[in-house]
Each structure stands twice: as structure tokens, then as C-alpha cells.
């Protein structure tokens, strides 16, 4: 039986889709069988970030409504044999997602994959609540910025009340993925620091993804950043996060902490 992860945030534009693609690819690169599921019905984008936009025939809504079989809708990644995508519908609206239909699809995927990663839409409405509904693990994607932190706090509340796990009285496993982190600005005191966000949200840290050009470059060419440039700083951070999901204990490093000659002598005292 595979594990179901929801990648969620409340706020839009913080990096849910990027992180879903990068973590999905990283886990598949480690040999696991992975499916990434786009729940953003009406505004799908995971297909584009994964570079599979021209291969979409059937989608999640087709499967839920019985117009297509699950195996027909799944798109296998061209670069990674064990990575699959289940796209969202672009033409229908989110009302086509029914709780029963979603449950059926997730149950089937769970049987056939090691990891089922659900990319949640922004907001707290139907699409978002259905994406988190059957999750075992939640990854809360947050930017070090006030509105993102506030929305994440709201989402954490929903994860603890509106999911199947919560309704059974179990504890939802939640992890913080801090994205677009700029260590230089945090050091200058103009961006919330990792510890600030951790203290406010008080959930364990899965990883820190540095703000980087490589992320945009990867989405430009339609490849998860862990595939397009596997030596880049964000890719390395996603690989570490994927290993932590697999239960490994690796210390979290703050990206950009390594200092030059001058910084070694004078850098640390600024805090």
C-alpha cells in the first residue's frame, strides 16, 4: 500500500506545483513508483511543469465520471520509467470532483504506487479540501512572507479537522516546506527566518528550498528541477526532502550558509 501525500498551502503562487513535480521526480529517481495527481480542476498546470502538456488525453474528471479508465488517463514520464502523472481537467469546473469519485481514484492509486502525491489548488474550497481528504502526510508549502504564513496556519487547521485521518481521531503527519528562501535577505533582517516560521507554525521542517533562477529555468523547459539540473541548489534541497520523506534523518542545512573568505571572518556576527 502506497502513501498519499498532499502538497498544500492555502495561498497561491508559493510553489506547490513546482514542489509536487520536484519531489515526485526525486522519489522516482530513487526507484519508487510515483504518481503525481493534479487537483486544480479548471486551472491545471502540473502537466506543463512536468513537460507533458501535449500528451494529455483523459483527466481526473474523466476517470471520476467513468468516461475513461484510470490506466488510460495516467501519463508515464518520458525520462523516468516509474513516474506518472494524472492530469486535472482544463475545461470542467471543480464541481465535477465528487468525494466518492476522489476516494475511488485515490484507493486505486494507493494500491498501485508507492507514493501518490496530490497537488492541491490554492484556496480552501472544494478542490483543496478534496485534495487533502485522503492524505496520510501533508506537505505545507510556505514562503517566508506574512500572507503565506497566515494562510498556511489556516490550512494546518483544516488538515487537523477536515481530513479522513482527523475525523478518525488520528494525527495528520504535517511537514513544512519553506520555499523561495533568500538567506541573504533573512540575514539582513528583511525576511522572516527559518526559525521564525517554524516557531509560528510549529510543525516539523521537511526542507528549505532557496530562491533560485534554476526553478524558473526548469519550468520553462518543462522538467522538474530535480531532473533538469540535479546539481542545482533547489534540486539538492528537494532530494534531501525526498530522503526525509523516506524516513532518513538528515540535518537541514540553510541554503547559502557557506561563506566566502571575508564572510567567514565577519559574517556570523551580524545576527
Amino acid at each position: 500500500m502506497g502513501k498519499v501525500i498532499v502538497v498544500t498551502s492555502g495561498k497561491g503562487g508559493v510553489g506547490k506545483t513546482t514542489s509536487t513535480a520536484a519531489l515526485g521526480a526525486a522519489l522516482a529517481q530513487g526507484g519508487a513508483k510515483v504518481v503525481v495527481v493534479d487537483f486544480d480542476v479548471g486551472l491545471r498546470n502540473l502537466d506543463l511543469v512536468m513537460g507533458a502538456e501535449r500528451r494529455v488525453v483523459y483527466d481526473l474528471v474523466n476517470v471520476i465520471q467513468g468516461d475513461a479508465k484510470l490506466t488510460q488517463a495516467l501519463i508515464r514520464d518520458k525520462r523516468l520509467q516509474t513516474l506518472y502523472l494524472l492530469p486535472a481537467s482544463q475545461t470542467r469546473d471543480k464541481d465535477n470532483l465528487t468525494p466518492e469519485g476522489v476516494e475511488k481514484v485515490i484507493t486505486a492509486l494507493r494500491k498501485n504506487f508507492d507514493w501518490v502525491i496530490c497537488d492541491s489548488p490554492a484556496g480552501i474550497e472544494r478542490g483543496a479540501t478534496l485534495a487533502m481528504r485522503h492524505a496520510d502526510i501533508a506537505i505545507v508549502v510556505t514562503n517566508p512572507e506574512v500572507s503565506s504564513v497566515r494562510d498556511s496556519d489556516r490550512i494546518i487547521g483544516l488538515l487537523d479537522s477536515k481530513t479522513v485521518k482527523a475525523e478518525r481521531g488520528e494525527q495528520m503527519e504535517k511537514h513544512l516546506l519553506l520555499t523561495r528562501y533568500d538567506p541573504a535577505r533573512a540575514e539582513r533582517g528583511d525576511m522572516l527566518k527559518v526559525d521564525d516560521v517554524l516557531e509560528i507554525l510549529s510543525i516539523p521542517l521537511l526542507g528549505i528550498i532557496p530562491e533560485s533562477m534554476d526553478v524558473l529555468r526548469a519550468s520553462n523547459v518543462g522538467a522538474p528541477v530535480t531532473l533538469s539540473d540535479d546539481r542545482s541548489a533547489p534540486a539538492l534541497a528537494y532530494f534531501d526532502a525526498a530522503r526525509r520523506l523516506n524516513g532518513e534523518t538528515i540535518p537541514v542545512t540553510v541554503p547559502g550558509e557557506k561563506r566566502g573568505f571575508f564572510g567567514k571572518f565577519f559574517g556570523r556576527k551580524a545576527a
Binding site: 512572507e145 506574512v146 504564513v149 497566515r150 533573512a186 539582513r188 533582517g189 528583511d190 525576511m191 522572516l192 527566518k193 521564525d196 509560528i200
Partner: peptide
């Protein structure tokens, strides 16, 4: 610096 203000406002809110 502005980060301490962000932190404090969030904690209260």
C-alpha cells in the same frame, strides 16, 4: 529591519 515586525504581527494575529 522589517522581519521582527512581520514576526510580531503574525504572532498576534
Amino acid at each position: 529591519t522589517s522581519a521582527p515586525a512581520a514576526r510580531e504581527r503574525l504572532q498576534v494575529l
